[in-house]
């Protein structure tokens, strides 16, 4: 992970592109940067693109779930996009609880879903 976490603003939404390897320090950086940016921009939705991560194991999965929870607490919707087939199988086999995490195939679809779900009463 580079020093600066790449966060792109797209209208009312943010796109966070995670890349390379995640360790304890980079995770902290990411959490600080993402929560700060969501609060600062008053974003309604955040896409977390994981297609650039070299490894997604149970540690990374927990990090993702945590990140999603933080974003929700800030009043924004979060969606994880770009999970690869092998990673998806591994997470299911490991039994990592990801039940409440919203997903999309790619950033485009994720954006469409964020837009559609924003005004729903139950969310």
């Amino acid at each position: 992970m580079p020093e600066d976490v790449p966060i792109i603003r797209m209208g009312p939404n943010l796109l966070v592109a995670l890349q390379g390897n995640l360790d304890d320090t980079t995770v902290e950086q990411i959490e600080r940067a993402v929560t700060g940016e969501v609060a600062r921009t008053q974003a309604t939705g955040t896409l977390i693109d994981v297609s650039g991560l070299s490894i997604v194991d149970s540690f990374v999965a927990r990090v993702l779930a945590r990140l999603v929870a933080m974003i929700r607490l800030l009043g924004a919707e979060a969606t994880i996009v770009g999970l690869q087939p092998a990673v998806a199988i591994t997470l299911v086999e490991l039994g990592v609880p990801m039940g409440h995490v919203r997903t999309a195939l790619n950033a485009e679809q994720g954006m469409a879903r964020l837009r559609g779900s924003r005004d729903e009463p139950d969310r």
């Binding site: 998806a88 199988i89 299911v92 997903t103 790619n106 679809q109 994720g110």
Partner: peptide, 12 residues
């Protein structure tokens, strides 16, 4: 069901 869940994680 695992297949369904893995597909869901991919966004399907």
């Amino acid at each position: 069901l695992k297949t369904v869940e893995a597909a869901r994680l991919m966004g399907t």
